[in-house]
């Protein structure tokens, strides 16, 4: 059988032709202003920061902050929900402009992302099943501890957490687990822990607000001792747009000084998490 060469050239071209929605990375600020839309990446699985509400719309503290930022930029907001590890990997190539996802500005992340402004601080705490005999954080030494993957909690357990944002409270590594189990997100960790003490894991490290939210929803968990560290949480943008960086920093400091951030924090957490606690 002879093949018409043209047919084949066409076949190999199909792959390229498919990627019709091609765009090229440009300056974030220009892109936002020219399209009039701020594309924000958030996790849809991170209540109460960001989640799908009863109307099946994105909602939560991070979402409210993002809306406010967009409003002050004078543009519309649009949310996309890629998985967390894709957001933290950087190199967004203009797929979205900004992450408002309670991201801790670690040193490793700072190599691929810029952090314009810290907008609040959350305590990270250890938690166990309510039947556990553990009394203090150090009781988790040599145990099987869970945390969501690519998170600061996971890095903390690995003793590899460096947060280089200004005003970060210092901390020390208090847990030496025998095994660290990694999960898709905090909820998945809590779902494994609720099965019983030591059934799948003996304890976890996660964001205190998330753990408290779980307990409020009848998860049989108990928070262990004082928070192990406070993590500053920041907006993140792709590297390389200083103008956008400064603009966002300005907006966040405005939101802090006029009390908007405090109001939002109290709305979602009942507590003001927007200033560092020593």
């Amino acid at each position: 059988m002879k093949l018409n060469r043209r047919i084949f050239t066409f076949a190999t071209g199909v792959a390229l032709a498919l990627s019709s929605s091609v765009s090229f990375a440009g300056e974030a600020m220009d892109r936002v202003m020219s399209t009039g839309t701020l594309k924000v990446a958030t996790d849809a699985n991170w209540a109460p920061q960001s989640f799908l509400n009863d109307e099946n719309k994105m909602d939560g503290f991070d979402v409210d902050v993002a809306r406010e930022v967009a409003k002050r930029l004078g543009v519309e907001v649009e949310f996309v929900t890629p998985s967390w590890d894709i957001i933290t990997a950087g190199n967004w190539n203009g797929r979205w402009d900004l992450s408002v996802g309670s991201m801790t500005p670690t040193k490793a992340r700072a190599e691929v992302l810029s952090f314009p402004a810290v907008y609040y601080y959350t305590p990270a705490s250890a938690a166990v099943h309510k039947d556990s005999s553990a009394e203090s954080v150090s009781d988790l030494n040599g145990k099987n501890v869970g945390a969501s993957t690519a998170s600061t909690f996971n890095l903390y357990l690995q003793k590899d957490l460096t947060i280089d944002a200004e005003g970060t409270p210092s901390f020390e590594y208090k847990i030496s687990p025998s095994e660290i189990k990694s999960y898709q997100d905090d909820t998945a960790v809590m779902d494994d822990l609720r099965l019983g003490d030591g059934v799948r894991i003996d304890g976890m490290v996660g964001s205190l607000p998330a753990i408290l939210e779980g307990i409020k929803n009848n998860y049989p968990l108990r928070v262990l001792g004082d928070p192990v560290f406070y993590e500053p949480l920041s907006l993140a943008i792709d590297k390389g747009d200083a103008e956008f960086n400064d603009k966002l920093a300005g907006i966040v400091s405005e939101m802090r000084s006029d009390g908007t951030l405090k109001t939002l924090s109290e709305k979602w957490y009942g507590i003001d998490y927007t200033t560092a606690i020593e």
């Binding site: 699985n45 991170w46 909820t187 929803n217």
Partner: peptide, 22 residues
């Protein structure tokens, strides 16, 4: 769903999140 497309599996994982009803 891992790249954030809101299809059935994505919604199954996220819609129960807030109320812890996965």
């Amino acid at each position: 769903s891992v790249i954030g497309v809101w299809e059935l599996m994505f919604l199954a994982r996220t819609m129960g999140n807030k109320d812890f009803r996965h």
